[in-house]
């Protein structure tokens, strides 16, 4: 079985977002870039599966759509244990542009299982996974919180509105994964980092795609006014303020 994990390169979660001069993008100076946390969980689960099912997983590849600046993040995925990396050389305009490129990669690479995070922590659009599933017509599920191999394919758990479902899912499949899917993400060890340098990182050119939407402006949230402090022995006063002043209860 071959697994392909799609990876988005995003600012570290502790980053304080500042806008760049064009107000359309964020200031990247001093930003640390990481594997999108949900994609990292997907990669972690792929590694766990290959360890728990010795011999049944031949390779784990990672792919990202982006310019050369995403390569350090792909190298990190290699250092964690992926066997090879692919970069599609395009700075994507929207989820659709990403999904179209990934679909091409899937057609070329023929993975049995495609894993990706439920969303990326920059665009928060939750679009790519379901788009890719629709483009390829594979079996699929979203909000997947548990994944095991089974004799007929996969046994998965997905979150639906107001509950969870356990599903049997044949291969090939595309799963958008979320919290719960894997334990702690792995920190690359020195040996992994050394090995990653010689693992293949292939760059492919994008296919033509017309974006369906564009980000025309970014804004930052308004600063909060100061917190009103209430004495510890006065829970009643808090409730009164929420009722009479804030009018939220």
């Amino acid at each position: 079985m071959k697994i392909l994990v799609c990876i988005s390169n995003v600012p570290d979660t502790t980053t304080r977002i500042k806008l760049a001069g064009d107000k359309k993008s964020v200031e990247t100076n001093g930003v640390q870039w990481i594997i999108n946390p949900w994609d990292e969980l997907a990669l972690t689960r792929a590694m766990e599966l290959s360890e728990q099912n010795a011999g049944s997983i031949q390779s784990i590849s990672v792919v990202s759509v982006g310019d050369a600046s995403v390569e350090p993040t792909l190298r990190k995925a290699l250092a964690v244990g992926a066997n090879e990396a692919i970069r599609v050389n395009l700075v994507p305009a929207d989820s659709y542009s990403v999904a179209v490129q990934l679909a091409e990669v899937v057609k070329q690479e023929n993975p049995d299982l495609v894993l990706l995070g439920i969303e990326s922590s920059d665009f928060n659009s939750s679009g790519v996974g379901a788009m890719l599933a629709e483009l390829l017509g594979f079996a699929s599920a979203s909000s997947v919180s548990s994944l095991e191999l089974s004799s007929s394919g996969l046994t998965i758990k997905r979150e639906v509105e107001g509950g969870t479902e356990q599903l049997e899912c044949p291969l090939p499949a595309i799963l958008s994964v979320q919290k719960g899917i894997a334990l702690e993400p792995r920190i690359p060890a020195m040996r992994g980092i050394m090995m990653a340098r010689s693992k293949p990182l292939k760059v492919v050119e994008p296919v033509a795609v017309e974006p369906l939407s564009e980000w025309i402006e970014l804004e930052l949230p308004e600063a909060k006014s100061a917190c009103k402090m209430i004495p510890e022995d006065n829970a009643k006063e808090l409730i009164r303020l929420l009722h009479e002043e804030a009018k939220v209860i």
Binding site: P211, S213, W215, I216, E217, L218, P221
Partner: peptide, 19 residues
């Protein structure tokens, strides 16, 4: 043009849809 959260709530984006 619609407004949505971006950067996990640390910013907002104005998104233009052309279709």
């Amino acid at each position: 043009i619609g407004k949505k959260r971006a950067y996990s709530g640390k910013a907002f984006a104005h998104v233009k849809v052309n279709s």
